[in-house]
């Protein structure tokens, strides 16, 4: 039994390079452009159009012309995270032609921005569209990130004093590294007291199909997140519709007094004269 050779171990390959990691790519902010492409994302389009309109108005207020391609559908993320990459690629590629001019592409969602920015290059690796996917990815920005860092947005609060808890999505926080953006923008509002919920960086339990594939775990997570937000403030804001739908839906179902809103809607509302 004492064998002193490696012959019993299956053959090993040594020359394959480790996969490139999404987190290693650097983000370069462009100068403030004349125009941007607005990619609404399927959830905003269908469930939270007000958030999309608020985002468009905030951009227009900055003197930026918003190009809204009417033939947009979905970034492809649901199929991507479910492992159906052929379908994800087909849907993602159908969006490529929406952005012919080199303007930035902005999204009112950290999750979908993360998909396009970080995962398109991986998804299209080894395909003829690889360079195109990378070029698109480089132009993609989550909208609040864009407003803060490209437009240097300065907000004037017109609203009454209010306490608000911010929930930053995991994709905004970890994939895009922009957890500070929501905090900075809210802190610009003089009458808004931002209260940090307990375990603020913990996931709300949405996770796309996770919520229906593993409903029990998801339920335990959203219960805790909802409670943490209520303990902080009766009002919470977030930049991701998945989290919003999950947390708000749980609060409604369990009749908890927690009011959720998309951060863009909140920012727009607070800066209006009749706020």
């Amino acid at each position: 039994m004492h064998t002193s050779s490696s012959s019993k171990v299956a053959p090993l390959y040594t020359n394959a390079a480790p996969a490139q990691q999404a987190s290693h790519r650097l983000k370069v902010y462009p100068p403030k452009p004349q125009k941007v492409y607005f990619f609404a994302t399927c959830l905003v389009d269908l469930f939270y159009p007000d958030a999309g309109m608020a985002g468009i108005q905030l951009l227009e207020q900055q003197g930026i012309e918003v190009l809204y391609p009417q033939t947009q559908t979905c970034c492809g993320q649901p199929a991507y995270t479910s492992g159906y990459h052929d379908q994800a690629r087909a849907v993602a590629q159908a969006q490529f032609d929406l952005f012919p001019e080199p303007w930035p592409i902005v999204l009112p969602s950290g999750s979908c921005a993360g998909m396009m920015r970080q995962h398109y290059p991986q998804l299209f690796a080894n395909t003829p569209e690889q360079a195109n996917a990378q070029a698109i990815a480089n132009r993609v920005f989550e909208l609040t990130d864009f407003l803060l860092h490209v437009c240097q947005l300065q907000l004037k609060d017109e609203g009454k004093p209010i306490k608000v808890a911010l929930h930053t999505s995991c994709s905004a926080r970890r994939e895009l590294g922009i957890a500070h953006v929501g905090e900075t923008l809210l802190d610009q509002l003089a009458q808004v007291e931002r209260i940090e919920p307990k375990r603020t960086s913990e996931c709300c339990g949405f996770g796309g199909t996770f919520a229906v594939r593993h409903p029990q775990i998801s339920a335990a997570m959203v219960e805790d997140k909802t409670q943490a937000l209520i303990d902080a403030a009766p009002h919470f804001v977030t930049t991701d519709c998945g989290c919003l739908m999950n947390i708000q839906g749980h609060a409604e179902k369990t009749r908890l007094k927690l009011q959720g809103e998309h951060l863009l809607s909140f920012l727009w509302r607070r800066t209006q004269n009749d706020a």
């Binding site: 609404a40 905003v44 389009d45 269908l46 469930f47 939270y48 159009p49 007000d50 999309g52 309109m53 809204y68 009417q70 947009q72 919520a211 229906v212 594939r213 409903p215 998801s218 339920a219 959203v222 219960e223 739908m245 999950n246 839906g249 749980h250 409604e252 179902k253 369990t254």
Partner: peptide, 17 residues
């Protein structure tokens, strides 16, 4: 599974498009 602990999401009257 979704509505065991959440209300069903309600589509808006008009989509953003």
């Amino acid at each position: 599974a979704w509505t065991q602990v959440r209300t069903a999401p309600r589509p808006a009257a008009k989509s953003l498009s």
